[in-house]
């Protein structure tokens, strides 16, 4: 069965567009505001959402997402409450949803129980940032049993052998890194992205969504020109939460405005 992410990417490609996926940390700065922001992003044109489960020690994330994690944890977010939150979001939002988590949260919730709950609340895909294909057997079995795709990262440093390993287990889409590094540190699409995407495409028959370093419409266009099927934008949007803490209206307005610009950059120019 084709996953919803693959179907989405194919549909946008047929229209000549790129897929636009904004990212938020669930519960940042608090559950209700975060719900409102997620809905706002969908109204701004999000083709899908990537949602982070906050973790105390996120080494793949830069300072902006780490601060978002801290705000969400301070607001009381747990794995259970975050998955219930997705259930609430699903009442009004139908776009595909992927979750970004760190392995310890899955492990402590119980791998089987975690994916069962993901399936129930309507999570389409899960990316466990610190889980390589080599250690994925249990997670893959549970994810498949509950109809959840398992996403992997790939970077320009991934060797042909690693890309093959990723190809063997990845479902839905590949999260391709725009640059080697952590989230949100630089607004940059490196010139080597094009060749890297070509190598990934040759090895893996899935949509390539590019993230880490995409923050402006110009970045979006560079990534699509380099061959991406779509873009994931996290820190650049999350930053609006930090800037407008205590003023949810201004926060939503700024984030939605920025999201509309990014979304427009993913559309085919007439």
């Amino acid at each position: 069965m084709t996953s919803r992410f693959e179907a989405l990417a194919a549909a946008r490609k047929a229209e000549g567009h790129g897929v636009f996926v904004p990212f938020l940390v669930i519960g940042d700065p608090d559950p209700d505001t975060s719900l409102r922001l997620a809905r706002g992003l969908v109204q701004a044109g999000a083709d899908a959402l990537e949602l982070g489960l906050p973790f105390s020690d996120p080494p793949a994330d830069g300072p902006v997402v780490q601060a978002a994690d801290q705000r969400s944890l301070a607001a009381g977010t747990t794995t259970t409450s975050a998955l219930a939150w997705i259930g609430r979001l699903r009442e009004t939002v139908d776009v595909p949803i992927s979750l970004l988590v760190y392995f310890n949260l899955v492990l402590q919730h119980g791998v089987e129980a975690f994916y069962a709950r993901c399936g129930e609340v309507g999570v389409d895909a899960v990316l466990v940032a610190d889980l390589p294909p080599e250690h994925s057997d249990e997670v893959l079995a549970a994810a498949r049993a509950h109809g959840v795709s398992t996403i992997y990262l790939a970077s320009e440093l991934s060797t042909p052998a690693r890309l093959e390993r990723i190809a063997a287990v990845c479902e839905g889409y590949v999260y391709a890194l725009a640059r080697v590094g952590v989230t949100g540190q630089h607004s940059e699409v490196v010139p080597s992205l094009g060749p890297a995407l070509e190598r990934m495409r040759a090895a893996i028959d899935l949509p390539l969504l590019v993230g880490f370093g995409i923050s402006t419409p110009a970045n979006v266009r560079s990534a699509l020109e380099a061959g991406a099927d779509g873009v994931i934008v996290g820190s650049a949007l999350v930053r609006h939460i930090e800037h407008h803490l205590g003023d949810p209206d201004a926060m939503e307005a700024a984030m939605v405005h920025h999201a509309r610009e990014l979304h427009a950059a993913t559309r085919r120019t007439p």
């Binding site: 392995f103 940032a129 390589p132 790939a154 970077s155 440093l157 991934s158 690693r162 590094g181």
Partner: peptide, 14 residues
């Protein structure tokens, strides 16, 4: 044990 890190570090660990 194992190697639970994000993909960008795996080539370096290898």
């Amino acid at each position: 044990g194992g190697f639970y890190v994000a993909e960008p570090l795996l080539p370096a660990l290898e």
